[in-house]
């Protein structure tokens, strides 16, 4: 009973929200890219790049004498911009050069892993972990934060968590209720249909992939400056892929993907709670929990996820002469 209490405590639920934040943000990014027809396994690499640039620019901010809060903000802004830049590389290869989208994604992931490690050595002269940088501080929302139970769960987080809360309805709105969203869905299902009514398919897809970079970059900043205050080599440890799993589990829809991200976040939070409760299980097993849940979710409980029909296909299908 004591154990169950520890698992279902307010603290665990709040931890679930925190764990789900980078997954949700990256998943929203994944949805924008994939609804438009571009597979984006580069989310992992984009997140890692975001995590690194966030720490780098936060450190730079501190070194030029900015206050801690402003330095952290600078770091977050840099993460978003670099996330966008990396995503546009993926877009250029996948959309303009018609490279296989998985190959481009894998290449970007490997590049991101290598370069962040290299720059960690070159700039900070360390391996493994970077020195501490000014991080994001929790920003309790006045009044709301004092509500019992709900306050600690929802309203005592870092700003990026609040952005995540807004990102889900924003994404759902953009995809469902705007002309851009309609065109994005069409671009992912039958690009020729919007091409023949005079809409530029490449433009629509570039914007979708670009948005994925913005969201994944922000997710990366949350990992390094939100949950910690330093960068650690390979610190995304597969979260980009878990986010993609959430996209698929959520049937390429924002609210459902958010639900999936919460599920994965919950298994992570439980794992932490069990460790803290001093379970006599090796921690390695507990650390596996989120990944195991992801596998089970994808293999077993998924009904019939219907991906966008033209996903992975360059447009036009034939190489222009």
């Amino acid at each position: 009973m004591e154990l169950l209490g520890a698992i279902l405590s307010t603290a665990t639920i709040a931890a679930m929200i925190r764990s789900a934040t980078p997954l949700t943000l990256a998943a929203m990014g994944g949805i924008f890219s994939e609804r438009g027809g571009v597979i984006n396994i580069a989310l992992e690499g984009i997140m890692l790049t975001g995590a690194f640039t966030a720490v780098l620019f936060s450190t730079i901010g501190a070194s030029i004498g900015l206050p801690a809060g402003a330095s952290a903000m600078l770091g977050v802004a840099a993460a978003v911009i670099f996330g966008l830049a990396i995503a546009l590389i993926h877009a250029y290869f996948s959309i303009t050069l018609r490279v296989n989208q998985l190959v481009s994604g894998v290449a970007i992931n490997m590049l991101a892993f290598g370069i962040t490690g290299l720059l960690l050595q070159l700039i900070f002269n360390v391996t493994g972990n970077s020195p501490a940088a000014p991080d994001m501080k929790p920003m309790p929302i006045p009044f709301l934060a004092d509500i019992p139970v709900l306050g600690p769960i929802l309203f005592q987080h870092q700003p990026i968590v609040y952005v995540m809360f807004l990102a889900v309805p924003f994404s759902a709105f953009l995809i469902k209720s705007t002309p851009y969203g309609l065109r994005l869905r069409a671009a992912g299902d039958k690009p020729a249909a919007i091409d023949t009514v005079g809409v530029d398919v490449h433009r629509i897809r570039y914007i979708g992939v670009g948005l994925s970079g913005v969201f994944a970059g922000l997710a990366g900043a949350y990992l390094s400056l939100g949950q910690l205050n330093f960068f650690s080599e390979g610190m995304t440890s597969g979260r980009g892929f878990i986010a993609l799993a959430a996209v698929i589990f959520g049937n390429w829809r924002p609210w459902q993907a958010f639900g999936a991200a919460l599920l994965f976040g919950f298994s992570d939070a439980v794992q932490i709670a069990l460790q803290n409760a001093g379970m006599s299980v090796p921690s390695d097993f507990l650390l596996m929990a989120p990944y195991v849940v992801t596998l089970i979710a994808l293999a077993g409980f998924i009904k019939k996820a219907v991906p966008p029909a033209a996903i992975g296909q360059p447009y036009p299908a034939e190489e222009p002469i």
Partner: peptide, 15 residues
């Protein structure tokens, strides 16, 4: 040149 999962109206006004 129609998008199968979209509705008839959505297809007509697309773009």
């Amino acid at each position: 040149m129609l998008v199968p999962p979209l509705t008839v109206v959505e297809n007509i006004v697309l773009g």
